[in-house]
Simulated assay, not measured.
Amino acid sequence: MSSASRLGFLHGGAFHQLATLADPAVKAWRPREIYLPEAGEDDFAGLDTLIVSDRLHPGQLARIAPALLRVAHDGGTVVVLGENEITGWLPGLRGLLPAETNFWWWRSGDDNGVRLNHPDHPAWDALTERSVRWHYHGLLEPPEGATALVHTVLEQEGEPGRRQVLLYEDRVSTAGRLIVTTMDPVYHHGSRFMPGATQLLYGLLRWTGTTVPVAA
């Protein structure tokens, strides 16, 4: 691995984000820590992958959106986590709808309606079913041509099933790719609440990381 990290982690300094960055399993990837309130265009230069942490200030996120999207426009990967305000600046997104959030599906064992798509997709070499079945904060309507990897079959009153997407990969809206989810793994990993969230966070790093992590 070169001394200049090719993996960026955009955060707002919240406790769960700092706890995640302090995790040895995350530090092994040597992410470039980008503090949102002070972020500028130069902070994103040379990145192959950018993780946009969940629960960022919507105004600050919209301000820096053109700069962070440059990573994808230049052929890299931008991973946008929920719970974030992404309408108005995320390319290709056709809708983000509210959905009931149930914090206890992972404990009760009930069917939360989440289903996996495209079993041969490379994402499933890094992600497990448990990593995407804990809860979510909305329903995405991806752009035409995007790959919907996770969806829910639960009925949403007045809303068609085509909008019930929880995780997608978009290779059509930029020269690179956008990976978007309404799950918020950084918050729950940093809060030590929900093991599936930790699995999703680690899985996303394995899937999208372009460098080899160092030994912890």
Score class of each variant (00 low, 15 high):
L166K: 04
A67E: 14
R163C: 09
R6P: 11
A175Y: 00
L167A: 07
D54N: 15
E144L: 05
T147K: 04
E169S: 07
V79I: 01
A175S: 12
P213C: 08
G109C: 14
L7S: 08
L18T: 15
L81N: 06
G190H: 09
W105K: 15
L204H: 01
W207C: 11
S5H: 06
W29P: 14
V214Q: 07
Y136C: 02
W124G: 02
T208N: 04
W124S: 01
L204V: 06
Q60R: 03
G113Y: 09
L97V: 04
V71F: 06
T181D: 14
T198A: 13
V71L: 11
H57F: 00
L154A: 13
A197Y: 03
F15M: 03
W207L: 12
N117H: 10
L68N: 06
R133C: 12
F9K: 02
D54T: 11
G138D: 04
V153M: 06
L205R: 05
E155K: 06
P213W: 03
G176P: 15
Q17F: 13
G161S: 08
R30Q: 11
R63I: 10
N112F: 14
E159Q: 15
P213L: 04
W106Y: 09
E129H: 01
D120G: 04
E85K: 02
G196V: 03
S5D: 15
H137M: 12
R6K: 13
T128N: 00
H189K: 15
G46Q: 05
G92N: 02
Q156N: 10
A22E: 11
G209L: 04
I51C: 05
W29A: 11
R55P: 00
W104A: 09
L61K: 02
L7A: 12
L81Y: 03
V153A: 13
T174P: 10
A215G: 15
G59N: 02
L50E: 00
G75M: 07
D111Y: 08
I179T: 13
R70G: 10
G161C: 02
A215Y: 03
P31N: 11
G190V: 09
L205Y: 11
L10C: 07
T49L: 11
I86R: 10
A215C: 12
R192L: 14
